[in-house]
Design a protein around this nucleic acid. Structure first.
Lengths: 396, 396
DNA sequence: TCGTAATACTAACTCGCGTTAGTAACGCGT
DNA sequence: ACGCGTTACTAACGCGAGTTAGTATTACGA
């Protein structure tokens, strides 16, 4: 009962011309075909419901109009961290704009051989790699194979590596400078580990803030979970216990991973600690998870949706062989000050760069994001919002 | 510099056999090929890094090992509602299990002609349609065209319509019965409208609860936003103003849409209303957005990830031409009682069915979901948790 | 009338694979 | 020596498109 698909040759027969002629008409190629024939072919193609067959088109043209996407963790959608959701939303904006579709690879990053094979099979014209796993063998292998690839939120050392990310170094800097300005001297720092570029860069920025303030780099108590070999939730507990037992005890905590901060904030009351009175907390990403936390968390925002859509732009330019002005595109970050470091919400937001506007003043859940930053309703004021946020490419 | 892909014929030449032989060896088909030849071909294929070309394979076999997914709204990832994220997570589990990939169509549901064309192009073997839009013309058109399709969270009247959903009628029933048991008689109900199947069914269940309690169906104050022609946020405000002006004033509100409940809860304090003291609130879906709301919201949970992965199972069975025991698969729902209807969290959870276990007792963010329900940390007790949640198919 | 050019096409090849049908070589029984 | 069956392959077709190269017809100028 399955009605057979209408092929190009069916249209050709109905129109009384050759398949080649139909192909020329439909692809808009002018091969001296008279208007009358052209109209007849177009009309019949429409009437008969002709649609080019995807696989045949791909085989003949060598293009799929699809881009692939690999997630470091397929379950990340439902983790507390909505990083992936925001990036994916930007990616979909990008693919829609370029008239591409998105192929979500379901294989796990840990099974990188399977992913490698699928990507090389040419099911997509290029691939976005989002949020690198530890011990990454996939990225270098793909680059070596010459597949068009753009890394999102990380990069590796390779002459063909293209990437989109935020300015993580500046993010670490802003976070730590902020707590220093609030008077804190004993600062803890939860890091995923230095093999992950954003972990490393945020730590570098943190150290820069310390040096700038005349503090020693060693005063920063860095907790690295990658090397601990513990499940994530247990690590958080252990790290907090350790932190609270330190002497002098840290009064500020900067946590690189937004999903972990929830574990922290939920665990602290049971340990007899109040936020921000006894421990001040700064997170990253500044999505609604930070904004709606109790208390709302001061957080380093990055324009996740812009990063997603910029990655698509970049990848498609590579696919089409166009030149790119830079291999690594960096977006600026912004510090959203909330109650976890600032009991009085009427104080101002810190914005280090003059080219970054702070978020719009709080209205309940703005329905449209005015800039590329995640939609959140931080309770902040705007000290000087004349300058608007600029997405212009900026040099490294 | 782009190194040319290794084709089957390259392997054949290297092995000194025909392409057909290579094809037979690689597809494991026994055509009397001696073990020695077989080994040689396999070794060379591996050494040369041969990977079958996706489009060629699809063209030859007529199968892509891909399933398509259409979202009613590509921006839904970042809406307050994480419904899509949970379903998508389940879908990815399903595609991983069956060794399929997922094709995310980036075109908008409103531009259904574009989607229709893409789906008919055969880029995927079948398609999941998630969360239907109003005035749906796509679904019937696809069914009429004979494309394998499974509808998630809705269904339409059509002999070929397959769907996966939760028991929405029971959900509406549980929600309203719960507030009736709490002593409420003036109940408001926010509905998306009756053309959306879950909106209609939840309302039916709500009315059943009223009738069962000996209350008149007319006592339910139903607010339908679909017919209002207002943007969603404005509608919420207007509906709330209207609600509060009613005499007698409703003391309970059941809201079908989880993302709207946030608008409600955030707007109420400014209107001088406290939850739950002056207005008791029940939401649906019971994802972390309800669980982490202040106050935490009583909510009707549905096993979103199971729904997603069941939809994939169903679709792939259809693609492979296997028989399905039923055209519409319904999952049971569960009521998670939280503080928005129950100021004292030490009271018990209401669980209408004995075959549905309540959620696990609260631990900070369980890392693994024990059943198919969204991960959330409702503060509830378990009255009798001997029975475990059953995913066995249940008759309509 | 012939040559050339423009018009209006189409045959045939290609993409990389699955698959059917057929064949050449060999062994073995009679 | 012949026939037959088994072993070990391969030629050729098809999937549904794009694309190249070529042809038949007509028009027009010399």
């Amino acid at each position: 009962m399955e009605s057979r698909r209408v092929r190009m040759i069916d249209v050709a027969k109905a129109a009384g011309v050759s398949r080649t002629t139909v192909s020329f008409v439909l692809s808009g190629r002018d091969a001296g075909i008279p208007a009358e024939t052209k109209q007849r072919v177009l009309r019949l193609a429409r009437q008969m419901g002709y649609r080019p067959h995807d696989a045949a088109l791909a085989l003949a043209t060598g293009r799929t109009r699809r881009i692939g996407l690999v997630l470091n963790d397929p379950t990340s959608f439902i983790r507390s961290d909505s990083y992936v959701a925001h990036v994916l939303s930007g990616v979909l904006d990008g693919t829609l704009k370029h008239n591409y579709n998105l192929l979500l690879h379901s294989a796990r990053y840990t099974d990188w051989h399977a992913l490698y094979g699928e990507i090389l099979s040419g099911a997509a014209d290029g691939t976005l790699l989002v949020g690198r796993f530890e011990r990454d063998e996939l990225t270098p292998a793909l680059l070596e194979a010459g597949v068009p690839v753009v890394c999102v939120s990380y990069q590796i050392e390779h002459p063909d590596c293209y990437s989109v990310d935020c300015d993580n170094e500046q993010g670490g800097y802003l976070a730590v400078r902020h707590v220093i300005e609030r008077g804190h001297r004993q600062i803890a720092f939860f890091s995923p580990g230095e093999t992950i570029s954003w972990g490393r860069d945020r730590l570098l920025g943190a150290r820069r803030a310390l040096v700038e303030a005349g503090l020693s780099e060693e005063s920063l108590r860095v907790f690295v979970w990658q090397e601990a070999g513990l499940p994530s939730a247990e690590w958080t507990q252990e790290a907090l216990s350790f932190l609270l037992a330190l002497n002098p005890r840290p009064t500020a905590l900067v946590c690189c991973e937004e999903w972990r901060i929830r574990q922290v904030v939920e665990a602290l009351p049971a340990m007899g600690m109040r936020v921000p009175e006894e421990l001040v907390v700064v997170s990253f990403n500044s999505t609604e998870h930070s904004a709606r936390c109790r208390p709302p968390l001061t957080s380093v925002a990055q324009p996740l949706e812009q990063i997603g859509s910029a990655a698509v732009d970049m990848l498609i330019k590579r696919i089409e062989g166009r030149k790119l002005p830079e291999r690594h595109r960096r977006f600026p970050v912004r510090l959203d000050v909330r109650e976890s470091t600032q009991p009085d919400p009427s104080l101002a937001v810190i914005s280090d760069r003059k080219d970054i506007a702070p978020p719009a003043a709080s209205q309940p859940v703005p329905s449209v994001a005015s800039n590329g930053f995640p939609r959140c309703n931080a309770v902040v004021h705007q000290p000087d919002a004349q300058e608007t946020f600029s997405t212009q490419q900026k040099g490294r």
